[in-house]
Simulated assay, not measured.
Amino acid sequence: MTDSTPDNERETLLEFPCEFPIKAFGKKDGDFAKRVFEIIKVHAPELTREDLSARESSGGKYVAVTAQITAHSQSQLDAIYSDLTDSGAVLMSL
């Protein structure tokens, strides 16, 4: 049996719109936070630089960037995670 529920209507525990943190991990370089910002901003145009925070790993080789967005749908979140994964710079995203 196949599920005929459209992607934008599938079940989720989230109630939209909601505040949602997106975290991306990558190697520390001068452009990583900027790249993460630009990827997410395509899908969340209201995102500002003030909505981002960054934290270096204990060894200083990696960085975690967190963007606090207002999520409007599951499909929006799926698109953000897909683009982050496809970027090549992001090693992992949560």
Rank of each mutant, 00 (worst) to 15 (best):
T85E: 07
A33E: 15
S57C: 07
Q74I: 04
A89C: 12
L94T: 04
P17I: 00
S75E: 15
V36H: 10
S57K: 02
N8T: 10
D3R: 05
L77M: 05
R55C: 06
L94Q: 05
L84T: 09
T12Y: 04
E15S: 13
V63Q: 04
Q74T: 11
I22Q: 06
F16N: 04
E11N: 08
P45K: 00
G30H: 12
T5R: 13
D78C: 02
Q68F: 04
L91W: 06
D29G: 08
V90E: 01
K61F: 06
A24W: 00
D31A: 14
E46W: 01
S82T: 14
S53W: 00
A71P: 06
S82V: 06
D29M: 02
S82F: 12
L47Q: 10
K34N: 14
Q74H: 08
L52F: 05
D7G: 02
T5L: 09
I80A: 05
D7K: 05
A67N: 00
S82L: 10
R10P: 10
E56W: 02
L77G: 03
G60N: 06
G60Y: 06
E11R: 09
R49I: 09
D31V: 13
S58I: 10
L47K: 07
K34V: 15
E9A: 13
A89H: 11
A24M: 01
F16A: 02
E19P: 07
E15D: 14
T66D: 03
S57D: 11
T48P: 00
M1F: 09
V63G: 02
S73E: 14
D29Y: 04
L94K: 08
V90G: 00
F25S: 05
S75A: 08
A71G: 10
E56T: 00
T85F: 05
D31N: 15
